[in-house]
Write a protein that binds this DNA or RNA. Structure first.
Length: 443
RNA sequence: GGUCCCUUCGUCUAAUGGUUAGGACUCAGCCCUUUCACGGCUGCAAUAGGGGUUCGAAUCCCCUAGGGAUCACCA
């Protein structure tokens, strides 16, 4: 069975890039009847918090991404220590005693002299007695994984045949001086133990993956299949991750964007499928194929998201959105929803139209003569489905106006807007009293 | 700076050496609707630049330019 994991670290809110990774993993596994694991990567307990973990879960739930199992790295520390022992026995891990400051300085001087800032492995030269000596002086080691300096090859699920030469990389630190494990190792240990079959993530993990493939092997396991998605950029082409703040899921939610609009866009952007709104997650799952993802960096454009958002409202039936409408402190009926659904770009537009139909509006029209005529010709009898044509016909005769000349000002008088829902239905729902009130109102 | 990845209409992309370089979105025009929207039809619009290889290059090779990623005791 296919098993994937989404492994956020609870150090912030999920943003659009993170979420795309979650979504792609979810769609990939669900399209193969697989298992989706949520793994909280909280090994960095200085930056991690329970609040963020809860927020991540809440956001995923809001987006209709449900996990089949949940793991937390902070509860699995023993396994990581065992793995380190194994690596030490196999001479694939070694202790180092440089301080963070020393390493940072070293990198800087390497960079300024035009060299790649790769760790020089000087700790490897330490003899057993050197190490014992340093330890006896109270120095605490951190540990690195000893890379084999050779090509690592893999068949990437997205990019195809890939390779990376490991001599371009520093031996990754896998255990901190204070004894806390680091992601590189923890992730591999978990993937082995939970039998993850496929790892899908952003291409910023490309070199991690290469190193981790060696780590899988060093721990006596076969590497899962790897796939690397190109990173999203903003509409100027620069990296999105730098501005995660304004593009968090929570931000989008508070701006009135719908989960299906977000998922529809993120599931299809960068693929050879056309971008269109999906009604529910099942439909996206059906159309999903990892091989449809390309290698170039798609631009994330919020206006594209807005367009999908509007389309979603046109598509969604009252029964499927009424639970959401309930959070607005106004009563929305089926009839009202059907009236306005074609004119909603953003969830809060519901309230905007409610106010226009039932509430008070500031600006009407200042065409007094026209309003007077409209009031005179307004049918006296009870409103029904013919009211609109009866009214506009007689108004047409009285005013001598027709077509746009007639309808645009009338719409403006009644709603204060130059466009909006179907007028014939709108007057029925708005009712005679409200219409009179609008036509009598003078600015 | 080393390494890796990327570059086709404005946008997302298709075209496994031979196509009139195709589709979707946007945009424009027309039709429909006694208005806007929806819908339908039509149209505008691209191979980053320069060299090769080849009868023939978007496609293969080299160079240049631009963008991104990575080289953390973050994940």
């Amino acid at each position: 069975m296919i098993k994937v994991r989404f492994a956020p670290s609870p150090t912030g809110y999920i943003h659009i890039g993170n979420f795309r990774t979650a979504l792609v993993n979810f769609l990939f596994t669900k399209s193969k009847n697989g298992h989706f694991m949520l793994r909280i990567d909280d090994t960095d307990d200085e930056r991690s918090s329970k609040e963020y973990e809860d927020a991540i879960k809440e956001d995923l739930t809001w987006m209709n991404i449900n996990w089949d199992s949940l793991e937390r790295q902070s509860s699995r520390l023993l396994s990581y220590n065992e793995a380190l022992e194994t690596l030490l026995e196999k001479k694939r891990a070694y202790p180092c005693f440089e301080t963070a400051e020393e390493l940072s300085l070293k990198r800087k001087s390497q960079l300024t002299s035009g060299k790649p800032p790769i760790y020089d492995r000087s700790a490897l030269k330490l003899s057993d007695s050197d190490i014992a000596d340093l330890k006896s002086k109270g120095k605490k080691p951190h540990y690195r994984f000893l890379l084999n300096h050779e090509d690592v090859n893999w068949n990437d699920l997205v990019k195809g045949e890939s390779k990376y030469n490991m001599s371009n990389l520093s031996d990754p630190v896998i255990l901190r001086e204070d004894g806390r494990v680091i992601y590189t190792l923890a992730s591999v240990v978990d993937d082995i133990q939970f039998e993850v079959t496929d790892i899908l993530r952003g291409e910023d993990h490309m070199t991690n993956s290469a190193a981790q493939i060696q780590l899988f092997e060093a721990l006596g396991s076969l590497s899962p299949k790897m796939g690397h998605l190109s990173l999203l950029t903003d509409n100027t082409g620069s990296g999105l991750s730098k501005r995660i703040g304004s593009l968090s899921l929570r931000e989008l939610r508070s701006q009135g964007f719908q989960p299906m609009a977000i998922s529809s866009l993120l599931a299809k952007i960068g693929t050879s499928d056309s971008i269109d709104i999906f009604k529910d997650m099942k439909q996206i799952v059906k159309s999903f194929d990892i091989s449809k993802f390309g290698n170039s960096k798609p631009k994330f454009d919020k206006t594209e998201l807005s367009a999908l958002n509007s389309k979603f409202f046109q598509l969604v039936d009252y029964k499927d959105i009424s639970h959401q409408l309930n959070i607005l402190d106004i009563k929305i009926t089926n009839e009202f929803w059907n009236l306005i659904r074609g004119n909603i770009n953003n969830f809060y537009d519901v309230k905007f139209w409610w106010n226009i139909v039932y509430g008070d509006i500031k600006e009407v029209s200042n065409d007094l003569d026209f309003k007077k005529l409209a009031l005179q010709t307004l049918p006296k009898e009870r409103f029904d489905k013919n009211t609109w044509s009866v009214w506009t016909n007689s108004l047409m005769k009285e005013s001598g106006k027709k077509g746009k000349e007639l309808f645009k000002p009338l719409r403006l008088c009644l709603t204060g807007q130059s466009n909006g829902p179907e007028m014939a239905n709108l007057v029925l729902i708005m009712g005679k009293d409200k219409i009179k009130e609008r036509l009598n109102k003078n600015n």
